[in-house]
Structures are given as structure tokens and as C-alpha cells.
Deep mutational scan, measured.
Amino acid sequence: MSIQHFRVALIPFFAAFCLPVFAHPETLVKVKDAEDQLGARVGYIELDLNSGKILESFRPEERFPMMSTFKVLLCGAVLSRVDAGQEQLGRRIHYSQNDLVKYSPVTEKHLTDGMTVRELCSAAITMSDNTAANLLLTTIGGPKELTAFLHNMGDHVTRLDRWEPELNEAIPNDERDTTMPAAMATTLRKLLTGELLTLASRQQLIDWMEADKVAGPLLRSALPAGWFIADKSGASERGSRGIIAALGPDGKPSRIVVIYTTGSQATMDERNRQIAEIGASLIKHW
């Protein structure tokens, strides 16, 4: 058993032996400061991975655009179909130039040979490839079927209504393609630790998130040596930015963190910096 498999397999085991986890309101002070700095709403939640207890939250039940963070949920739905014998990670999917949409750094290189379902999930999560996400959405029946999958998990909040890139429109008060921090954190925890997916599929999902290559300026920039993080970021119109993550010290995840912001006029660099500073406060007061 690899170190990674050891880590995921023991998450339920550690729940019975973990020390009490204490919240630190200092992080919420930073979240509120980020709102002031960005001139935008910020949603935040910090969840204990083992118990599911909410440690801190700010606007946990307000809607925010999901942006590309939905791609983790999408690959969770794909893995659920794999577990049920309805899909194979090794199945190759062929597509054409007409299928390519904006920001497809991986799929645009494989027009001649296509990509496997496994490769598409990797591209969608680690590189946020939009065509990969659309191709995967097609395999499960489209955005409405992803919403149905989430409903069956008990998440009646999170919804996907459109495809890439239209889902990134982020119109104020538009509930399409949105979630709430509390709903996203709970759903992510179920995917990573619950019985919905097999152990192998849970491991695969967290491996893809751990290999994320496009979230460096966010929480990863504040991470001390030896800490673990598996994450997925997102960005969209109207100053929207977000990240969902499982992270913790000693090389294993122990908390879920979800951060969303929307409605800012700030630059992408400034949005990144504010999220990184929230992460730094979280780690300092861990």
C-alpha cells in the first residue's frame, strides 16, 4: 500500500482517536478583511474532515458561482459510474476541433488520438481543461445529471445548469451553476471519506486533486513544508474566484476548506493574494 493509499484508508480510523479540534476566530477576521479589500462577498467554511463538524464559517449558506470547482464533483460522478460498472477509466473518447472550447490546454493536443476517461478527469482537475469537462459531462448525461447525482448524495443546493464556458457567467442573483460553501464542503467530504465511492475511487479523486497544477498562487502558496493539500480552484466573470481543498499537517488531510468570492473589481492577482492570506491565517491558527 502506497503512502497515498495509506492516508485515505486511515481517514475513518483516525476519527475515533483524534484530539479535539478548536476553532480560531482570527481567520474570520481575515475573511472579513478580504471582503473589505476586494469590495466583494466572500464565503468561507472550515470543516473537520473526520467528524464533519463546522469549525468556522462566514456566509456559509449564501450562493456563489461554482466556477471550475464543479470539476471535482463531476469526476466524482464519473467515478461513481465506474464503480457501478457503467463506465471505464480506460475508455478512449474521440472528439473533433468543433468540440474544443476556450481554455483547453490538454485536449487541444489530442485531437488525433483522443483521450481516456482517466486522462480527461486528470486534465479537468489538474489543468482545469474546459473541453475535458464538457466531454465528461456528456458521458454522464449533461449538467442536469450532475445535479441529480448531487441530489442523490443529499446535496439539494449545488446545481450545474450549463456547459463550459457559459457556466462562468456569474450573474448576480442567478442561481444557475452555483453552490453554497456549507453544501460544497459537505459534499466534498462525502466524496473523499464516505461510502458513495469505493476506496480506490476515493483515492483516485484525491490523487487528481493533489496533482492540481493551476492553484499555486492560492492556499498552496501559504503551505508550510510537510503539509498535505488536494485542491481545485476556479475563476469566472465578475471578479469571481474560489477554491475547495482538503489539507492538513503531517502529510495527511484533516480539514476541508472552501473559499468563494464574487462581485469584485480587483485584479486576479489581488483576488489570489487575499485567498492566500486567508490560508496563511488558517495555518497560523491551526
Rank of each mutant, 00 (worst) to 15 (best):
D231N: 04
L199A: 15
W227G: 02
N272I: 03
E145G: 14
N173T: 11
F149Y: 12
E277L: 11
K109L: 13
V8K: 13
M66S: 03
F149G: 02
A211L: 08
W163K: 07
W208I: 03
A9I: 12
A16S: 15
F17Y: 09
A9H: 12
L197P: 01
W163H: 07
V82L: 04
L136V: 05
L89I: 08
R7D: 10
T178H: 02
E35D: 04
L73Q: 01
K53R: 13
V257S: 00
P25H: 10
E35A: 04
T116G: 02
I93V: 13
S68V: 00
A182E: 11
L223I: 14
R238G: 14
P253S: 06
Q203H: 10
P60Q: 12
P65T: 05
V42M: 03
F70S: 06
D231S: 06
L160T: 08
V78G: 00
A40N: 08
E46G: 04
K144S: 13
Q97H: 14
L167H: 02
A215S: 15
A15K: 06
D269P: 08
L136D: 00
P217K: 11
Y103I: 05
R91S: 05
I206K: 09
K252Q: 12
G251T: 06
A9K: 14
T187A: 05
R41P: 09
D207E: 13
F149Q: 06
I256R: 00
A235R: 00
N168D: 03
G239A: 05
D129T: 00
P172K: 08
T178A: 02
L223C: 10
T116I: 03
L188K: 00
P25S: 08
K252M: 11
D129V: 00
N173I: 07
N98I: 12
S281G: 05
V72L: 02
T179L: 01
R202Q: 05
F58L: 07
H285Y: 13
D212S: 06
T138K: 15
R220A: 02
R189N: 08
G226S: 08
G90R: 10
T158N: 01
I275F: 10
H285K: 07
K284E: 13
Y103G: 05
R176N: 07
A40P: 03
H285R: 08
T267Q: 08
G90F: 11
G251C: 08
Q4T: 14
A222I: 13
L137G: 01
H5L: 15
I206S: 15
R241S: 02
I171M: 14
S264I: 06
G154V: 03
I229F: 03
M127V: 12
N134K: 03
P20F: 03
I54R: 07
K71E: 00
W163Q: 07
T186I: 14
A266L: 08
T139A: 10
